[in-house]
Measured scan of single mutants.
Amino acid sequence: TYYTVKSGDTANKIAAQYGVSVANLRSWNGISGDLIFVGQKLIVKKG
């Protein structure tokens, strides 16, 4: 599943929404920190 980042989103918020850990969200998308951008497409695997 892909999720498009919206204004006000955070890695924590997206992870919680899908029931996954922030560490997994980072791993699936090659993100090292919490910096995400509006319009960015993230791979999300439901927990």
Rank of each mutant, 00 (worst) to 15 (best):
F37W: 10
K45R: 13
I14M: 01
Y18G: 01
I14A: 00
Q40P: 01
Y3S: 01
S21H: 06
S7F: 14
K46A: 13
V20D: 02
Y3A: 03
W28G: 01
A15N: 01
A23N: 10
G33K: 07
I14Y: 01
G8E: 06
A16Y: 09
K6D: 04
K41N: 09
T1Q: 12
A15Q: 02
L25V: 04
Y2D: 04
G8S: 06
Y3L: 03
I31V: 07
G39E: 03
Y3H: 14
S21W: 05
Y18W: 14
G39H: 04
S27C: 13
G47R: 10
T1C: 10
N29Q: 01
N24L: 14
V22D: 04
L42S: 00
D9R: 00
K46H: 12
L42W: 01
Y18L: 11
T4K: 06
N24H: 10
I14Q: 00
V20P: 00
Q40I: 07
N29K: 00
V22H: 04
A23I: 09
W28P: 02
G47V: 13
T1N: 10
I36K: 01
A15L: 03
L35A: 13
R26S: 10
G39Q: 02
S21R: 04
L25R: 00
V44R: 00
G47N: 12
V22M: 10
D9M: 02
N24F: 07
A16E: 13
N12I: 15
L25I: 09
Y2L: 10
F37K: 10
K6M: 10
R26D: 05
Q17Y: 13
Q17T: 11
Y3T: 03
D34S: 09
N12M: 14
I43A: 05
L42N: 00
S27G: 09
Y3E: 02
G30E: 11
G8L: 05
V22R: 03
R26N: 10
L42D: 00
L25G: 00
I43L: 14
G39M: 04
L35Q: 14
Q40F: 06
L35V: 13
D9P: 01
R26F: 15
K41W: 07
V44N: 00
N12R: 13
R26G: 06
Y2N: 05
K46R: 12
K45H: 13
G30P: 06
T4V: 14
G8A: 05
F37V: 12
N29F: 04
V5Q: 01
G8Q: 06
D34V: 08
G8T: 06
Q40T: 07
I31C: 08
A15I: 03
A15Y: 03
T1A: 12
I14F: 02
K46G: 12
G33N: 11
V22I: 12
I36A: 02
N24G: 06
N29Y: 02
G39C: 06
G47E: 13
L42M: 05
K6V: 11
